[in-house]
């Protein structure tokens, strides 16, 4: 009764409609302003980096305070230097390979693991979950990890960057959370239709969790893209280094004169600051390009009602 009344009011009552709308407007007003501030505040670092990367290095050194526009003569010397480095190209190639193969493996492993952990009544689930989570907190450390890779004959192989990283437990847990949120009724319906676990996983779970899957692609993808530490300990051949390690090494070289024992002259190439910024641009730009394609997966609303067998 009460519902019908207020419903009727909402539709027909002009004053209450206006109240509703003005409440909406005030909030939206502040919301838009607040979010705009957020944008301005968070865009500054990126803006700073881009502007600094093309500024004149000597003027940049002398500049203090906020940077609002490139100082001095605009120069792309830093970018030229970075791209002239032959390792950068091989770095990109390696990273793309790792990304494509790696994320595919990641998705497969994560989906099967998360699915299992989301099944309502399966024996040993709790123990397997503990078995997995325990590894998040206790590990053997770098040395046994390294020896392990060596024993598996993966040293100096690009696979050492893919297989050991096949699963991230945190991501696994997040994916499982998404699967758990899929309404039981749909799972039951599929079971009644005679679906086995594989079918349930592929026909019910996966299609209904596209948003989280997109996030998985993003998380794993960015993880692979940014990683350099494993490469630094497992790879020997310079031609196999992924992009981030190459860039990191370029940066380090331009900041201090060589490794231990150097003359201590503290050599600073004129471009060293610019290179630091240019590298950030070079390594982040591809992510910004790919992101919009993934974004649409998790900004759309899902009408679960429409997805009925």
């Amino acid at each position: 009764m009460k519902n019908m009344n207020s419903g009727a009011k909402a539709i027909s009552g002009k004053s209450s409609l206006k109240d509703y709308l003005s409440g909406y407007n005030l909030f939206s007003y502040f919301n838009y302003i607040f979010l705009t501030i957020i944008v301005l505040v968070t865009i500054y670092p990126a803006y700073y980096v881009i502007v600094a990367s093309i500024s004149d290095p000597t003027e940049l050194q002398r500049h203090t305070g906020l940077l609002l526009a490139p100082v001095g003569e605009i120069t792309f010397a830093a970018y030229k230097l970075v791209f002239k480095n032959p390792m950068v190209l091989s770095g990109y190639m390696n990273t793309i390979f790792i990304l494509v193969v790696g994320v595919t493996i990641n998705l497969i492993m994560t989906i099967i693991g998360a699915y299992f952990l989301s099944i309502k009544n399966v024996m040993f689930k709790k123990y397997i979950m503990l078995f997995i989570i325990f590894t998040m907190y206790f590990s053997g450390g770098m040395i046994p990890g390294y020896l392990n890779i060596r024993d598996l004959h993966m040293l100096d192989s690009i696979w050492s960057l893919i297989i050991p990283g096949a699963l991230s437990t945190t991501n696994l847990i997040i994916m499982r959370t998404a699967f758990v949120s899929v309404p039981d009724s749909l799972v039951e319906a599929a079971k009644i239709d005679g679906a086995n676990h594989l079918k349930i996983m592929m026909k019910v779970m996966v299609p209904l969790t596209k948003a989280t899957l997109a996030v998985m692609v993003l998380y794993y993808g960015v993880g692979h893209w940014n990683s350099w530490f494993s490469a630094s300990i497992y790879l020997r051949s310079p031609s196999k280094l992924p992009l981030q390690l190459v860039l990191r090494n370029i940066l380090l070289a331009n900041q201090s004169g060589g490794m231990t024992g150097g003359v201590g002259l503290d050599e600073v190439s004129q471009l060293s600051d610019l290179i630091k910024y240019a590298l950030i641009v070079v390594s982040t730009a591809p992510i910004l390009v790919i992101y919009p394609f993934l974004q649409k997966f998790f900004t759309k609303g899902v009408m679960i009602g429409a997805v009925k067998e």
């Binding site: 050194q61 002398r62 004169g257 201590g264 002259l265 503290d266 050599e267 600073v268």
Partner: peptide, 22 residues
């Protein structure tokens, strides 16, 4: 370094290349 180059300061501590050379 900027202070030194802008005349805000007249003394600093530094190394041969990164300081004086720079």
């Amino acid at each position: 370094n900027a202070n030194m180059m802008n005349g805000q300061s007249g003394v600093t501590v530094g190394a041969l290349n990164g300081g004086i050379g720079n």
